[in-house]
Design a protein around this nucleic acid. Sequence first.
DNA 1: CATGAATGAGTATTCATTCAT
DNA 2: CATGAATGAATACTCATTCAT
Lengths: 173, 173, 173, 173
Amino acid sequence: MKTKKEQILNSALTLFGTHGFDATSTNKVAKAAGVSEGLIFRHFQSKKGLLNAVMASGVERAEQSYNEILSLKKPKDVLRGIIELPFSIEKKEHSYWKLLYSLKWQAGEYEDNSSAQLKKGLNKVFKDLKYKDPKAETEILLSIMDGMAMTILLRNPRNKKAILEVLLKKYKL
Amino acid sequence: MKTKKEQILNSALTLFGTHGFDATSTNKVAKAAGVSEGLIFRHFQSKKGLLNAVMASGVERAEQSYNEILSLKKPKDVLRGIIELPFSIEKKEHSYWKLLYSLKWQAGEYEDNSSAQLKKGLNKVFKDLKYKDPKAETEILLSIMDGMAMTILLRNPRNKKAILEVLLKKYKL
Amino acid sequence: MKTKKEQILNSALTLFGTHGFDATSTNKVAKAAGVSEGLIFRHFQSKKGLLNAVMASGVERAEQSYNEILSLKKPKDVLRGIIELPFSIEKKEHSYWKLLYSLKWQAGEYEDNSSAQLKKGLNKVFKDLKYKDPKAETEILLSIMDGMAMTILLRNPRNKKAILEVLLKKYKL
Amino acid sequence: MKTKKEQILNSALTLFGTHGFDATSTNKVAKAAGVSEGLIFRHFQSKKGLLNAVMASGVERAEQSYNEILSLKKPKDVLRGIIELPFSIEKKEHSYWKLLYSLKWQAGEYEDNSSAQLKKGLNKVFKDLKYKDPKAETEILLSIMDGMAMTILLRNPRNKKAILEVLLKKYKL
DNA sequence: CATGAATGAGTATTCATTCAT
DNA sequence: CATGAATGAATACTCATTCAT
């Protein structure tokens, strides 16, 4: 059986992800987790502390995915891996990603710097592949990834496979 | 001189856009607009009513841009116009777009269907230009647009011009 | 009929005076005053703001008494007036004085500087009356006043008259 | 090395004395004492129980001082001893006395009856010394002591020695 | 004896909304 | 049309206290 701390983290992730951080009261989190409200503060100090804990537990997994791909040897493999990333978000991870993206629009709420390494890695890939303007290409691909994530998380189109194929072809993969 | 109703709309747009809908109290909006709090409710019934009014006034301008571009005759001109769109968001419109995007991540807060026509139009363009999978191409371009908007509104990269050029070249424009 | 703001001030004075500032919740004040809790904050910003308002309304009356006495011409009249002061606290003013004295023991809660002028005045009186050590005499009389106030407010002895007489005789009045 | 129970008592005295009883949480006491919060309740049942224990340990010392002085044979020695009392409060005892006095203003918090014997003793002294109204004299001296304690604990005047001398002269000591 | 997780009632304060003027 | 006093429900957070270990 899960510890109460984990129950709180789970409930918080789901609620923050679906209704947003501001719109989710600690009271709701406590009820969803089946614990007293006070316990949240004993474990996480503040609501923002809870948010940070929720994010931290997700960031780990995300960074792992990144780094695994970035450490591949052939640049083309890296590129493919990165592009495939948004398409491989599992259902049970949706809450986490929704939360992450919604936070990006809320200034100051949460600082995300996981993309710094990703940027570096992509830049190198485009250089290795002799693209003319690697920096611009990096920004474009990062944007595509963010946009694709948005599309998949919010609109969930049926033709994801077809989309991925077309996308890969654009990068000659 | 602006009517008090307009003052409220302006202040609400700015505040909602910078601090978010939830984090902006009607009290703050009233003070920023220099009116009494009660007046907000006389004019807009509820806080959500104010949000809807704010969005409506923005949607109008947005749709106008869309439609102007979509009504161009040459498919390539349409394509170029659409792609250029995120790059041409004016500073004073940032609040509106930030608000729009942040709302997209908050289920139920606001329903955006402005993209339906855009989707249709793009689909036709890609068909006319003989792209193999127009539906997938449409989804990709919409995603690129969302992603580019995110990039520009949140990270504001310096090499916007270069990015746009590379992007246009990808579509042979 | 009294305004709600005044009702709040009255209830706060009574409750703060009898149970102390910390032990009195804004909820209790609101209920005692027959108003909503929110109104307290609309009028006084914070609980401490309420305390300040409560004290300010009392300080005025207190300083008036002081100054009236200090402005008497004959030093002996001043001395008698000051000594009689603690004995003339009216029942309906007990809450205020209890609150004032209890606050003196709570560092930082409320800054009382009303005694500065009183000190000056007494010093002059003792000089005029050729007492050997006016400064020490002043400190002693101030202490006697504080002590008498304590005695009267907390123990309320039956022989107040007799006490006053003995006290006056000590100062040859 | 001190027992944990004593550590709790010490920390409680200091904190209660400096910040007040209400403003001091059992959590703070536990942390200051370096023990678990639960232990406080094992030893003292409740927060008020802790308060009583803190006071009791102080009352003992205080009563000892009283009784020592009251048992002196010459009435004048008793009088001098009592008057000197407030001037001989040691720095490390300040917390205790501040707490005691602040509690006197909080109805019901703590019942102080230590002064009963003191009253009796003083009454006898004034009778022995043929003062005209011993009861009134007793009340006055008790008030002076309370007032002096207040002065010393809160304002800490520099001319304490001079004050004491003048005071003793008033009682022909 | 001692801990620390857990609770439930309570805290000051905020907020959207109403309404008499 | 416009105000501002007033409300009641909600909010994040605190606290004294309990209890299993």
